[in-house]
Design a protein around this nucleic acid. Structure first.
Length: 199
DNA sequence: ATCTCGATTGGCT
DNA sequence: GCCAATCGAGATG
């Protein structure tokens, strides 16, 4: 189980979004350990991507998108915390939204936090997974490449995943490019509908 | 201090 | 499929 290094994140955002599928996301604090396999992501680019916060002017909230890759980028939408990871080299904006994981670690603790019994409802959406894993503004800016961080992403040797893509979900003005990536047919993704093979 | 908006969710038709 | 509750940040006064 190896932590993904900075170089993994400092690449083209859509490549990072695809590459994160099948990796293990892990959170730990005094309450316990929770985590799961990333099964759905979305890429958010810089200028020219109307859906991206980096297409607007820099603020305290979004400036982290211009920083180095591998940092937690967290903000609230519709009363839910959303968790992203920064991408690209310093100066170039980009981030990947983690939309769903397949729960594998600390399932009992996640059930307690989410107040749902159905495992399929535990982490199958961007706001659901942050609640289950207790990811909030507190973790904004955390470096995911450091072993001592409360939040890390690991390589666990999953190979030959069948990857599908679609347009991004819930986005008002989306690009023509398909920037949502997910593991085909995985029951833990947020929406099953869009079902096209990536490339 | 107040208003508006949104990369959502869950409940209802 | 539609819709409204959600709540913090940013903008505005």
């Amino acid at each position: 189980m190896k932590i993904l290094p900075r170089e993994f994140y400092e690449r083209k955002t859509p490549e990072v979004a695809r590459g994160l599928l099948g990796k293990l996301l892990l959170h730990r604090d005094d309450e316990g350990e929770t985590g799961g396999i990333i099964v759905e992501t979305e890429a958010y680019l810089g200028k020219g991507d109307p859906a991206s916060r980096a297409s607007k002017k820099k603020t305290k909230l979004n400036e982290i998108m211009w920083s180095r890759g591998g940092l937690a980028f967290i903000y609230m939408v519709h009363g839910k915390w959303l968790f992203n990871i920064t991408t690209e080299k310093p100066g170039i904006p980009g981030a990947v939204l983690i939309r769903a994981i397949e729960p594998t670690i600390g399932i009992e603790l996640m059930i307690k936090r989410r107040q749902v019994q159905n495992i399929l409802e535990l982490t199958s959406g961007p706001g659901k997974l942050t609640e289950a894993m207790k990811i909030t503004k507190e973790l904004h800016g955390v470096d995911l490449t450091l072993p001592e961080s409360p939040l890390i992403v690991c390589e666990i040797g999953l190979k030959n995943l069948e990857i599908c893509s679609s347009h991004r979900i819930g986005v008002k003005k989306d690009l023509q490019r398909k920037l949502r990536f997910f593991v085909c047919g995985n029951p833990y993704i947020s929406k099953q509908k869009p079902f096209k093979r990536a490339l």
